[in-house]
Amino acid sequence: MTEIKTLADLKKKQEEVKSRIDLRNKAENPEARVQVKVAMATCGIAAGAKKVMEYFVEELEKRNIDAIVTQTGCMGYCFAEPTVEVILPGKEAMVFGYVDNVRADEIIERYIKHGELVDGIIPQNYDTIEHEER
């Protein structure tokens, strides 16, 4: 591949991958896609959320998993950053804490592919210190 440096290069690249994107968009409706939301507030960023997000984008693409990777704010689990929320189609959202590349790999291979639970889940009914005081 030649270097991408101008807008024209980007356009060319878009045309190259267009058929692949269209195929994917037609194949499944958005609700059937896996959603991965990386918490990207101050706490997440400082803990390395950017690296984790790049890893998810790259690996999900490599492993041919149709997923939307996006960002979200702080969920109040600053102690467990980087945190990642994964929503499998038709399932409840699951929040994972202390996600590094190793754990991200585990989340993709075991939870996203096979629905198996892996370490680091932050239960939905988990109370932050903040909630307890109220």
Binding site: E3, I4, K5, T6, D9, L10, K11, K13, Q14, V17, R20, I21, V57, E58, L60, E61, I68, V69
Partner: peptide, 16 residues
């Protein structure tokens, strides 16, 4: 016509 939210274009943009 560039689709910014796709993984393919994410890598292209990063390179750009």
């Amino acid at each position: 016509g560039i689709e910014l939210d796709t993984a393919e274009m994410f890598f292209a943009l990063k390179e750009f």
